[in-house]
Write a protein that binds this DNA or RNA. Structure first.
Length: 157
DNA sequence: GCCAACGTTGGC
DNA sequence: GCCAACGTTGGC
């Protein structure tokens, strides 16, 4: 099983949005970066788990946990001229962008902030924390995953 | 809202 | 295939 971190701007799509959908499940739309796409398309498997990360907001950080419930399929928002994610170069015959389906497992009581994550030497190698990293989908090592989960023991909802 | 870092585009 | 110009991301 692999572990991931997936970013979303909460004003666009937050963990609360996800939790309140039927089955707390939705497609993860709008990834328009090749490296992030490749992680989703080539490496994500059903049962993998991912941190839900809020970016570009007051307190950026990890806000909960998801699991992958459907492996990659074409991101249909790319086909919709009315979508913010429309890309005329992606067609149903030859899709360029892909999405997975995610399911919320848990929301943390409190955001595990980026600034706190940066204080732990155990996390210094995290892809998220690498200088200049902007990838919206990044791998998380098993050790990093377990360390972060342990930080939240006792503060889960 | 600023801006550094990075990715993409497109002329040549 | 180089690389300058431009657009985007996302912390601050």
């Amino acid at each position: 099983m692999n572990y991931w971190l997936m970013k979303s701007e909460p004003t666009t799509f937050s963990i609360d949005h996800l939790i309140h959908l039927p089955n707390s499940t939705d497609h993860w739309e709008g990834v328009r970066n090749y490296q992030a796409r490749n992680f989703m398309r080539d490496n994500m498997r059903i049962g993998d788990q991912a941190f839900f990360y809020h970016s570009n907001c007051e307190v950026p950080g990890i806000v909960g946990i998801m699991d992958i419930v459907q492996e990659s399929y074409p991101d249909f928002t790319a086909f919709d001229p009315l979508s913010n994610y429309y890309d005329p170069k992606s067609t149903p015959e030859n899709p360029r962008w892909f999405m997975v389906s995610v399911h919320a497992l848990q929301k943390f009581d409190k955001t595990l902030s980026l600034s706190e994550l940066k204080t732990y030497p155990q996390l210094h190698e995290m892809v998220l924390l690498r200088p200049g990293n902007r990838l919206s989908v990044t791998p998380v090592s098993k050790k990093e995953w377990q360390f972060i989960l342990a930080l939240n023991t006792g503060s889960q909802s």
